[in-house]
Design a protein around this nucleic acid. Structure first.
Length: 547
RNA sequence: GCUCCCUUCGUCUAGUCAGGCCCAGGACGCCAGGUUUUCAUCCUGGUAACAGGGGUUCGAAUCCCCUAGGGAGUACCA
């Protein structure tokens, strides 16, 4: 058996834990100050610009970011666009602006540059051939001339006999490659420009022993692996080659990526071995699962269950189809990030609300779970509610003002601040303040039939008129004075609180909802309150005649 | 099919590495009660889980084995 992992006495997990404990000793002295750079910790988020980044990808980026900041390391964005056929215009910009909205920033990237530029793999194209040649010359890789059609046929044939075709030790000897052909022939074909790919030669009869920070030791026999294409016939590397070369060149210390990459880990470890490079440490994150049933969360689930799957709204450039985003749906970025952080990771305490700084302090890969997490849209709303509650009335009033302006409603910021204060604890989103408190801005157009039936009695018109008369004399129209005046008036006239107030609410709001009535009247003012009482009595009368 | 990974309330999870403090704790949701002029908030309470089976042990959610279920991968995609 060959040990493919590093030859140290301590497994990576032990070394890692040791390292973290040292850092834990140093970091508190420099709290909230990430100038204590640890140049050894370098992580990257490496998306492929094939479309919008979904929340699983955002979480991966977030964990990379938290890990880097926690250890004073470097966060890198690398665009993996080695598949020219899958390029989607706008996807790159989408990824960057989405992460920026979340507060995830990069130290090195296609936009800010860095010592290892370029950070877009298509811009690094010339680089990869030499590494492919290195492997070729060392006998770790070989040329293969089988066409995609030929391979497709082989796969179909295998499928018919309920088997799977694999390009490996048993099949490669019968296929068209530099292992089965003589060197002159190979040279001639390449010289003539016959398309070829470069495949990795998987070593036979050994085991690859890997250490994952989250999963521990994983062992795979090389017989189960296949000779993956490293270099494509279009002159581009595949993900596997480009990824290893760039991670090495960019001195990546920790690869934190989704679990879907775990099956490729043996290949990657083998590649590091073949190059004679030290491999980074790996952490494979559990997947985000659909809220109902099983399986990886996908765009379709969002459409089906009515929640966003993307951080920002995305319009498909080809189909024009629009996918909703968290930002456009009214979520706060910090609430969104907080929710995402807790999906698969937990601090081990009962704290649930974390700002970015707190996340950075609390985060550790050791506390990332192994099992996939079903995404819960309901809890996401709860997080937003918590953040909304903690924001100032002024800040919320400002966003409400913009929102109302879109509806053509002009309102004073001072007024909106009062409305927000009265309504914020009953909504999850700023835009819900409109649904909950439309009556602050417009007199009711209709009056709830159910409420009329229950609360509007024969003597209600007379009582309301008398109440309006009394209200006329309340000069300082603040909630306290209004309450005091009504209370006294009720006592003098011997009216019941419930009967009067419910009828009054019907006139002012049009329905059985909303905050304390004195608060509402104070906000809309005496004039408007009296107008609504007067008009309401008439309107309800008409409504009853018509029905 | 094959390879690898995973499995505690409906959901997110604590507890698992270092077995007893766990007839399993918190949160979301749901249900009930209370507060209230309405609705909502809020408060109080409740609901509900160690996938199954075998071991090891005085003692197992925790260690070992098996079974079942789920997921991912299986491309000249990433």
């Amino acid at each position: 058996m060959i040990q493919y992992e590093s030859q140290t006495l301590f497994p990576p997990k032990v070394l890692f834990a040791f390292f973290c404990s040292i850092n834990a000793l140093i970091v508190p002295l420099h709290r909230n100050n990430h100038s204590l750079m640890n140049p050894k910790i370098r992580v990257r988020f490496a998306p492929s610009p094939t479309g919008p980044l979904h929340i699983g990808g955002v979480r991966t980026a977030l964990y990379n970011f938290l890990f880097a900041r926690k250890h004073g390391g470097t966060m890198i964005l690398r665009i993996e666009d080695t598949d020219q056929g899958r390029f989607v215009p706008g996807a790159e910009e989408y990824i960057i602006s989405s992460l920026a909205w979340c507060g995830i920033h990069f130290d090195e990237s296609i936009s800010v540059g860095g010592p290892h530029a370029p950070y877009r793999q298509s811009d690094r194209k010339p680089l990869y051939k030499q590494y492919s040649d290195l492997l070729l010359n060392a006998g770790h890789a070989y040329y293969a001339f089988d066409t995609p059609e030929e391979l497709e046929m082989l796969r179909k044939e295998a499928e018919e006999s309920k088997q799977t075709f694999t390009y490996n030790a048993v099949t490669r000897k019968k296929l068209r490659n530099s292992l089965t052909m003589n060197p002159q022939e190979v040279e001639k074909m390449i010289g003539e420009g016959i398309p070829f790919v470069v495949r990795f030669l998987i070593p036979e009869n050994t085991e690859v022993v890997m250490e994952d920070i989250i999963r521990g030791k994983v062992v795979v026999k090389t017989e189960t692996l296949d000779d993956k294409v490293l270099y494509k016939s279009d002159g581009m590397p595949t993900y596997h080659l480009a990824n290893i070369v760039d991670d090495h060149l960019m001195e990546i210390s920790h690869v934190i990526r989704g679990e879907e990459w775990l099956p490729s880990l043996p290949l990657h470890i083998l590649l590091y071995q073949a190059f004679g490079w030290e491999a980074p440490q790996f952490a494979h994150l559990p997947l985000l699962l659909k809220p109902d049933g099983n399986g990886k969360l996908s765009k379709r689930d969002g459409d089906r269950l009515g929640f966003p799957v993307f951080p920002l709204q995305w319009v498909d450039p080809k189909t024009g189809e629009t996918s909703s985003g968290y930002r456009e749906s009214g979520y706060f970025p910090d609430a969104f990030v907080n929710m995402l952080a807790l999906l698969g990771w937990n601090p081990g305490t009962e704290q649930e609300l974390f700002n970015m700084e707190e996340l950075i302090t609390a985060f550790s890969l050791e506390r990332v779970g192994k099992a996939g997490s079903k995404f819960d849209p309901e809890k996401t709303k709860w997080f937003n509610h918590q953040y909304l509650l903690r924001k100032s009335d002024e800040e919320l009033a400002l966003s409400l003002k913009t929102l109302l302006a879109d509806k053509g409603i002009e309102a004073e910021l001072k007024q909106l601040t009062k409305v927000v204060a009265l309504l914020k604890d009953r909504v999850n989103f700023v835009h819900e303040i409109w649904n909950e408190g439309q009556f602050f801005f417009e007199a009711p157009l209709t009056y709830d039939e159910q409420v009329i039936k229950k609360r509007w009695k024969d003597d209600s018109p007379a009582i309301m008129q008398s109440l309006a008369l009394m209200l006329q004399d309340v000069h300082d129209f603040n909630p306290e004075s209004i309450d005091a005046a009504i209370k006294q008036w009720l006592e003098v006239n011997g009216f019941g609180m419930g009967a009067v107030m419910n009828a009054l609410r019907l006139l002012l709001v049009g329905a059985a909802k909303g905050p304390h009535l004195a608060d509402i009247m104070s906000v809309i003012g005496k004039e408007e309150s009296l107008r609504r009482i007067k008009n309401g009595i008439e309107a309800i009368n008409n409504q009853q005649i018509n029905s």
